[in-house]
Design a protein around this nucleic acid. Structure first.
Lengths: 335, 335
DNA sequence: CGGGGTGTTGACAGCGCTGTCATACCGCCA
DNA sequence: TGGCGGTATGACAGCGCTGTCAACACCCCG
């Protein structure tokens, strides 16, 4: 009364296990009638191949691994959700793992997933190019998402970080802002570095000089960003607008604004977040469109699994400025 | 130059593969010196057992499956994150799957995970007791989270839905509210039903009669809740406070409040959500403490995997009222 | 009518483990 | 001294698949 095996299907259908195997894997050169008979037996017995056995017998696990910073980060949660949905459509399972932003752990998790025999891996890496390149396996298809980290021999999907940041700051400049603050730990990721570059660029275009007092690059978490944001907003020559280079930075700013009752400071956050549209004022964001990112990542992975030799692609998706209110505030009248 | 197998370790250590297997599985009756020698060989060769082979050879996969409504729901994202972290600590992987609130899909996903040979399953089920009971496998350890759904033969972890709702409504009553609205599709889950019961109970305690015009039980998503909330808040005898029985309902109410500029209506939401503390006013919530839920779920699962015959536990965790502002608003003066 | 495809199927040997059972050895007691 | 029980180890047969290779049609063409 155990689960039926391929032998049961073979017996039921009157063919050999090999032919059943062929039908399961949609191999060529099987007569249509045979396929039908085997399919009928499979249906009758409610047979499903055992993934572990398939794996052991030479194939890969019908599974894809996803490794992200943290699963409950809304951005990555969406990425995982999309991958899971897409994987389900093609009958694959998804193994999730998180790095917790720890390099050793990242390497360990990648190894574990690879060892597991997954058919492919979606990874949001971090760290310097050397480390990342060493950590990514070469014998498993890998797609790198969100952060390039100097990877050149794998498919990459990411967004136009610099352009997005430029859009954000231009948007603020267009509203008349000249004193625009920046928050984001530029040393952490190349993405953040790029966003800073975009910030600089937009200012330069407008003939505005970067004021070091308005640039804060030390904070990484929202908790760290908060005091800096507080300090920046509390000074006499506070910025009239702030560009937060990540949602975490954004939260830090929002907390500071709430604390100081300074909702009149314009704000654009790089990266959308839940209920941003319900804030007072609703938050203008640069949407990274995580679902598009994940969709593309899945497509690329599927492509590479199917054709390991395909040309390596570095896909850069556009971001989307979503004006909701906070980014459209005019500079408050100088007191 | 492929991955080392148990044979390589056997050769390297000078013992048979069986003894190596014993060491890997920490089986009894192996001389300490042997263990050390084998361990050294394992270390030297950087050997890691192949999970698929372990599975096929009689064991279970060192993997636990998690099935939730949706992976990017903040509540479930946290649950998944905690399970993943705990699993990693004990060297297990996590397969995620989502039901998308579809019964057929739920059943399918459960079967897939079970077939996969996972060591255990954490499931947030839904649907009537019969369906759920039929969908849950008996040959794999299962822990049911968040919603009991009439399950009696599996371990369950959930929160005090009725008590939490009562707390919320009492809290509002204590502020002087008498006209308190309710939003939540009571027919969807027993959890929501319980929350409604809690609502009724708190009103009864205060000698307040339930006003059918203030009770809306048809909406399930935030989009559905929005028009109802709008209607409820726009009437002449609008409630002075609202209890939203789920975060989604809460979002509907918040949108309606924003639209109508009625931030003066008190609000308590069952279930915390990101940045609730940054809203205007900050949202008072009944925290379901998803991390505690997930921790307990993991503990229960580990216990059952280790001892399949253990007594079945129905664990009910307390919720936590988190006052942040919206729930402490006094009834506005009647116009 | 024979040779060389092409299409269709099956026998069988693994894949890397674990379970079962056998073996070898030790110390102990009668 | 023989026999018994316990400890430590190994031989070997699977687990449920897939890959390889062989077998056996059958067809077309010269």
């Amino acid at each position: 009364m155990s689960r039926p095996t391929i032998y049961d299907v073979a017996r039921e259908s009157g063919f050999s296990i090999k032919t059943v195997s062929r039908v399961i894997n949609e191999a060529p050169n099987v007569r249509k009638e045979t396929v039908d008979r085997v399919r009928a037996a499979i249906e009758l017995l409610q047979y499903h191949p055992d993934p572990a056995a398939q794996r052991l017998g030479g194939g890969k696990l019908p599974t894809i691994g996803v490794l992200v910073d943290s699963i409950d980060d809304p951005f990555f949660a969406q990425v995982v959700a999309v991958i899971e949905a897409r994987a389900m459509d093609v009958g694959m399972d998804v193994l999730v793992a998180s790095t917790g932003m720890d390099e050793t752990r990242m390497r360990m998790q990648i190894q574990r997933l690879a060892r597991r025999g997954v058919a492919g891996l979606v990874v949001a890496p971090f760290g310097d190019p050397g480390t990342v390149a060493a950590a990514l396996p070469d014998d498993v298809p890998v797609v790198v998402v969100d952060r390039k980290c100097g990877v050149t021999d794998k498919d990459v999907v990411r967004v136009t970080d610099e352009q997005g940041a430029t859009d954000a700051v231009r948007h603020l400049v267009a509203r008349g802002h000249r004193r625009i603050g920046f928050l984001g730990k530029t040393s952490a990721f190349n993405t953040l570095q790029d966003r800073y570059t975009g910030y600089e660029k937009a200012l330069a275009e407008a003939g505005i000089e970067v004021d070091a007092r308005l640039v804060e690059t030390r904070a990484w978490t929202a908790d760290e960003a908060y005091p800096y944001a507080l300090a920046m907003l509390a000074t006499a020559d506070a910025p009239t607008a702030v560009f937060a280079a990540s949602p975490m930075m954004g939260l830090g700013v929002l907390r500071a604004q709430q604390r100081l009752h300074r909702q009149d400071v314009a704000l654009v956050i790089f990266g959308d977040y839940p209920v941003a549209e319900l804030m007072t004022p609703p938050t203008t964001v640069i949407d990274q469109r995580p679902t598009a990112l994940a969709d593309t990542a899945f497509d690329l992975l599927a492509r590479r699994i199917q054709d390991p030799g395909a040309e390596v692609l570095d896909t850069v998706l556009p971001t989307l400025l979503v004006p909701r209110g906070s980014g459209e505030l005019a500079p408050r009248a100088e007191s």
